[in-house]
Design a protein around this nucleic acid. Structure first.
Length: 897
DNA sequence: CAGTGAGCGAGCTTCCGCTTGACTT
């Protein structure tokens, strides 16, 4: 069995993170070599270049999963992990035993399994697990190993394969129907939908305005806090409406409340000038607040955002540095549990810093708030068996501030509750106009601050936080109180706030979507795809996101339902428990069942997805002006608005969807034509000449009279590269419009030679024979003699003449000359017969003959001409071609930007 | 989204989760 063993007695322990390896090595001592896997070591092929040759020809190669044979996944060692795997193999060779000590969760178990598959150990293998990194825990773990949990690995593979099928099958639908390079996925699509849904709610929102009275009251000089604020609460026994009494439609939803308008509120203020108020009631309730649980990834991200203004990824990268340098425990965790030694350290610090009266009798524990928590790690806390105070760390800047936050939160989590009294006072009085009015004042007195002494959580809105509320004087029922100031105050109900990074992450976590290691990058994904952009800290969806979300909702409803992931988690749990089978679950997802429509069918039957319809939205109409007939369309070149007459206007990329109104749209349409530069009238035709910015760049055109026959098209001409919209003169425009210009007649053939500008630059044309010329200016100046001289030369075909390329040498296979050339799709090598585009990682400057020969050989292997391989294949080919066309068009515009 | 003239090689995009550096600015 241990024939390869060295007899050295050395044991190899593999964990996931290098920082962890370092710490654990210290706890295990000599005889153990601790290395890390640095996360996952292999994965399904990510792109075409990763696909192993053995499966390249398969129809499912693109997926990396053999959907027809039990969804067998094909894994490849990621290129950046190859050298690391060599190192691990070498270490294993020198060892007698292998401990797979990856995290004890679904992904960790899978990493352990992949390691075993890839390392093929011939020595005994143990699975070792621990949930906290203390000497005790580590030594206990190494003494009590178990075996690999293959059901858990199955669950991970199911998760991985499902995500691949979802992502790699649905994304191409978006390329075809919306735009190339878009993406869909179990997590990102729901995240995008959340942002879009919120924007929809904002668009549908109708604000309501309401008034009340703000007062400052004076309880008299015998009170310490004599002045206190109060707000109008009721008039003649009916409660005054406040924000929460209104629907999002602006309608009042509560009955029996008075909706105060400005005039009534101001009249009341006047009628209360001489009123003396009486305390009608004083209600006091005990107040008690428990400390917050220690940080996990999402709560750390939220507080770092609220208190330190960090983005989710900034918070994570600062935390990463703290972790690597041994200041905090692992920062990607869904657990709020503290190890015993951490609890002790926190309690010690409470006693030292705040005194024993702040220390609860027994340690506090926090139940997990996360339903699918995998609890492979501790909560995020200061590292070590005793905590360093921030000052003792020697840290500075962001690292200091984040450490301080983590330290305070951890210590506070082991402190006593804050207790006090919440007091609510009602003041009554009579207006001179006869109404009975009631004002309300509320306050809080904290008698014991408890944990609030150490830590107060930030708020997303500016409502009162836990430690700040007005103090009220100790008034009693029947006391007289005067109003020091009264003022009518107007309010408006506000639409639901946009998500920020932090609130979106919190929402995703609550819906069990995404994992601690991915929360920050989800934001990056939806921003990079152009689904969402940041306006300050708010996340605003683009119109493309509206299109994509609508397509997914209408055709892949289940996949973007907010419950999909939760349902998947349940199934994965069943698989992990050995009660369900990976293959049949994936088969149901992909091929469907009686109750579920399969993904495969959905993505192959796209005929009824009407792309134009999906990309068309009526412009929101908050004023209710009725049928304004203006729509927004998401076009290839971005969003634009179009009115009934087909007049269009570009919508700026940074105009938030909820700010687009019919009025704004009309503005955009008007400005579109207003953006044209009127140059004057043509001296001969009398027509107005305008310069415009067009799809192919700036151009000039003439404005035909309204009554001109439809057939008649205005003359147009692109500006020369030396001209600009700002500087062009009428004279230049008139000259441009003379193009195409007749240069003369070829005496030999009798054909007319003309000079004009075209797609590929300036050229001459004689019948069907065309020749490029050097400069645009020549279009206006070239003489017949010069033109004839050009035609006397043989036609230079292709780029070959202009760009002969660089010769590399002779192809050993064909014996042909191999050259590198630059073409429409970038650089390629050719041997005169076959052409092969350079791949990612190839460089046209440095490419060698060998590499070129390799590329050409691959090309040759594919056969000379595309072979017919049955009707199905041909059909597929034609759709592929269509996307190609789209992609090229998109590229052109992208460049222009 | 203005309208032009030929002809040259297609190949690839995309998912979620685990981890760090290696990059550039």
């Amino acid at each position: 069995m241990a024939q390869d063993a060295t007899g050295s007695g050395q044991k190899l322990v593999i964990v996931e993170s290098p920082a962890k390896a370092k710490t654990i090595a210290g706890y295990l001592g000599p005889g153990y070599v601790v290395e890390s896997s640095i996360g996952h070591i292999r994965d399904l092929p990510q792109s075409a270049s990763d696909i192993p040759a053995s499966i390249k020809g398969e129809p499912w190669a693109r997926l990396g999963v053999d959907v027809d044979n039990d969804f067998t996944p094909y894994y490849v060692v990621s290129s950046d992990k190859k050298s690391h795997m060599t190192k691990l193999k070498k270490l294993l060779k020198e060892s007698d035993e292998l401990y797979l000590a990856t995290d004890e969760d679904r992904e960790g178990e899978a990493i352990a399994w992949h390691l075993q598959e890839e390392l093929k150990p011939k020595v005994p293998v143990h699975r070792m697990v621990f949930h906290e990194i203390t000497k005790q825990a580590i030594q206990a773990a190494v003494a009590n190993p178990r075996t690999l949990d293959t059901d858990l690995v199955e669950a991970q593979e199911a998760r991985r394969i499902l995500d691949r099928l979802y992502g790699y099958e649905v994304s191409p639908v978006l390329w075809k129907k919306v735009m190339p390079r878009l993406s869909a996925g179990r997590v990102q699509s729901v995240a995008t939908r959340l942002v879009v849904d919120r924007e929809r709610a904002r668009i549908a929102f109708r604000s309501a305005s309401y008034w009340d009275i703000e007062g400052t009251f004076d309880a008299g000089e015998r009170h310490e806090d004599r002045m206190f604020p109060g707000r109008l609460h009721a008039v003649d026994g009916s409660r005054v409406a406040r924000g929460s009494d209104f629907e999002s439609t602006g309608q009042l939803k509560s009955s029996g409340v008075v909706h105060l308008e400005r005039a009534r509120a101001e009249a009341l203020v006047n009628a209360l000038h001489d009123t003396t108020f009486e305390v009608r009631s004083v209600e006091s309730k005990p107040y008690r607040r428990q400390p917050y649980a220690p940080f996990r990834t999402t709560t750390l991200q939220q507080e770092a955002s609220r208190k330190l203004g960090m983005t989710a990824s900034q918070a994570m990268s600062v935390a990463q540095r703290l972790y690597e340098n041994g200041f905090i425990t692992y920062m990607r965790t869904d657990s709020t549990t503290l190890s015993q030694s951490a609890v002790n350290a926190a309690r010690d610090q409470v006693r030292d810093l705040y005194g024993a009266e702040y220390l609860p009798d027994s340690p506090r524990t926090y139940a997990s708030k996360v339903k699918n928590a995998q609890e492979a790690h501790e909560a995020i806390r200061p590292a070590g068996e005793t905590f360093r105070t921030p000052a003792q760390t020697g840290l500075a800047g962001q690292e200091f501030r984040l450490y301080e936050l983590i330290w305070m939160r951890t210590v506070a989590s082991q402190m006593k509750d804050a207790v006090g009294q919440s007091v609510s006072v009602r003041l009554g009085g009579q207006a001179s106009t006869g109404e009975d009015v009631v004002f309300a004042a509320s306050g809080r007195v904290i008698t014991f601050h408890g944990f609030l002494k150490a830590y107060v959580e930030g708020r997303d809105d500016e409502s009162e936080s836990d430690d700040s509320q007005a103090r009220l004087p100790a008034v009693e029922e029947g006391d007289e109180v005067s109003a020091a100031a009264l003022q009518a105050a107007g309010h408006e109900t506000k639409p639901p706030a946009r998500f920020t990074e932090a609130t979106l992450v919190r929402e995703l976590e609550e819906r069990e979507i995404g994992r601690p290691s991915t929360y920050a990058s989800i934001i990056g994904t939806i921003i990079n795809r152009g689904y969402v952009y940041k306006k300050g800290s708010a996340l605003v969806p683009s119109w493309v996101a509206f299109s994509v979300v609508r397509l997914l909702e209408e055709h892949f409803e289940r996949l973007v339902s907010y419950e999909f992931t939760a349902g998947m988690e349940d199934i994965l749990d069943e698989i992990a428990g050995g009660r369900k089978d990976r293959v049949s679950e994936l088969a149901e997802f992909y091929f469907g069942s009686d109750s579920v429509e399969g993904l495969h069918k959905l993505v192959t039957e796209l005929g009824d997805i009407d792309a134009r319809e999906l990309a068309t939205f009526p412009v929101p109409d908050p004023q209710g002006e009725g049928d304004h007939g203006i729509v927004l369309r998401v076009g290839r070149y971005g969003p634009y608005v179009e009115d009934r007459d087909g007049e269009r206007g570009n919508v700026p990329d940074d105009l938030p969807p909820d700010e687009l109104t019919p009025e704004k749209a009309r503005d955009l349409i008007a400005n579109q034509s207003g953006g044209d530069v009127e140059l004057g009238t043509h001296p001969e035709t009398g027509l107005a000449i305008v310069a415009k910015a067009g799809r192919y760049g700036p151009y000039v055109t003439e404005v035909l009279p309204e009554d001109a026959p439809k057939k008649e098209k205005p003359r147009t001409a692109s500006l020369f590269k030396s001209m600009s919209l700002e500087e062009i003169t009428l004279e230049q425009a008139v000259q441009l419009l003379t193009l195409p210009r007749v240069v003369g007649v070829d005496p030999e053939s009798g054909e007319e030679i003309t000079a004009q500008n075209g797609r590929y630059g300036p050229y001459l044309k004689k019948g069907t024979d065309s020749r490029s010329i050097e400069s645009e200016e020549q279009l206006l100046t070239i003489t017949l003699d010069e033109a004839l001289r050009i035609y006397a030369q043989p036609k230079q075909r292709g780029r070959a003449a202009a760009n002969p390329g660089k010769e590399l040498g002779e192809d050993p296979a064909s014996g042909n000359k191999v050259t590198v050339k630059s073409g429409r799709f970038g650089y390629y090598v050719t041997d005169g017969e076959y052409n092969a585009t350079l791949r990612q990682g190839d460089d046209h400057e440095t490419i060698t003959l060998d590499r070129a020969a390799e590329l050409l050989a691959e090309k040759r292997a594919k056969g000379p001409a595309p072979q017919k391989r049955g009707a199905k294949k041909t059909a597929k080919k034609s759709t592929a071609k269509k996307t190609t066309k789209k992609a090229t068009a998109k590229k052109t515009t992208a460049k222009k930007k």
